[in-house]
Design a binder for these strands. Sequence first.
DNA 1: CGGTGTGTTGAGGCACATCAAGCCAGGTGG
DNA 2: CCACCTGGCTTGATGTGCCTCAACACACCG
Lengths: 225, 225
Amino acid sequence: MQQSNIASSAETQTAWPNEDSGLGGVRLLPPYDALFREGDETVAFYEILSGAVRAYKIFPDGRRQIVAFAFPGDIVGFGHGDTYRFDCDALTTTRVRVIHKLSLLRAMRDRPELAEKLLDVARGEVETLQDLSLLLCRKTAIERIASFLLTMARKSGDPAACERLPLPMCRADIADYLGLTIETVSRNMTRLRSLRIIDLPDRGSFQVRSMERLRQLAECDDTTH
Amino acid sequence: MQQSNIASSAETQTAWPNEDSGLGGVRLLPPYDALFREGDETVAFYEILSGAVRAYKIFPDGRRQIVAFAFPGDIVGFGHGDTYRFDCDALTTTRVRVIHKLSLLRAMRDRPELAEKLLDVARGEVETLQDLSLLLCRKTAIERIASFLLTMARKSGDPAACERLPLPMCRADIADYLGLTIETVSRNMTRLRSLRIIDLPDRGSFQVRSMERLRQLAECDDTTH
DNA sequence: CGGTGTGTTGAGGCACATCAAGCCAGGTGG
DNA sequence: CCACCTGGCTTGATGTGCCTCAACACACCG
């Protein structure tokens, strides 16, 4: 579950086209404001600078599935054709850098290393989604929660992280990401806490107490149970 | 659920680098032979010419998840870093065109339209995986089967297809793709047949009798039940 | 013929969903 | 300051869809 962090691939720090040209600029989103909506024309990609967003789809019958959360360094808006296939909005106050699609494509013609970088973003997105599919297909509720928290822990800094980590989304968001109900999320969070694997100091945060046991649960490693 | 068909994007028919240079050539795989294995170095992408392959992951505890089937026109081997993250093998006798990764990257530097084409392949893969996530997250068993059959129908030719269509994978493969068991797959196939939505003339094929009702089920459109 | 592999069908159990009540922090107004 | 409301979260009781286990059907093959 690697990030689609743009800095991870390029040896030389390559700037996105708007960074220097100033074409796109930065957008500021208050909590729950939309970055884009399903059906809108795909005019831009967005690099998250601070805050967090969620991308989701609503079914005709009302069911909702969150397909991705994105955090600083991530790019959103990628896996779409001429129109966006999902809604995307902010979880908290969020700043994004706007990367106009057309100017990016134009810039790509002159700077082939940009294309490689973009392909790397795509690869990261594919990897994340493959892992999500694995999770949804084969894991139990507690394994899903464990996987999710592990990913969140890895995203928010050093992998041995034992400090308090932010959990900016509500239980309903987690549930709709993991294919569970809020009750099941809640029950299994509590279960992980009573197993002394995590702590839940307050609503918006968590803390890993045993990274090793969290990892074992998340990766379906049943060698030690 | 669009295909990642390479012909779908480019206005001008752009050849993959090996097609003319003859560097990669074609590989022939007997049924169930491996195209690549998890952990192998990512040396090439493969364009399916005929037949079909499956890409899957085996968990430490034995659970298996198929993350993709690929058919003629599809590219596999894309969403991987330096090593392949999954096993990939043939369902039936399969011919693939080998596209060496390095020569593709080299060719991309001279021909920017190749990069766009490759990005389009990536986009297709992301879309397919997003749809798979939606399916695994929120759909019931019969809706999953319906979605799967609908995708298969759309892949194998004209969308109004009423003729007999091939189903080259066994029940276990379908089950491991949809996050179900073979029994549940079997039961719901039978159910779709008794609902007169499909026919099952023999093991390796199916036939759509009511494309409209299949679509309604697959897209969770509960307006008419 | 029996043997094997694949698919179907049936009976029962279990994990998660559903429904419902209660907890707790934050906000609002008297 | 407290009374009350509200929304997010937790906890409990019950229901159900899919899994598990088991038997059987059928084609293929030696």
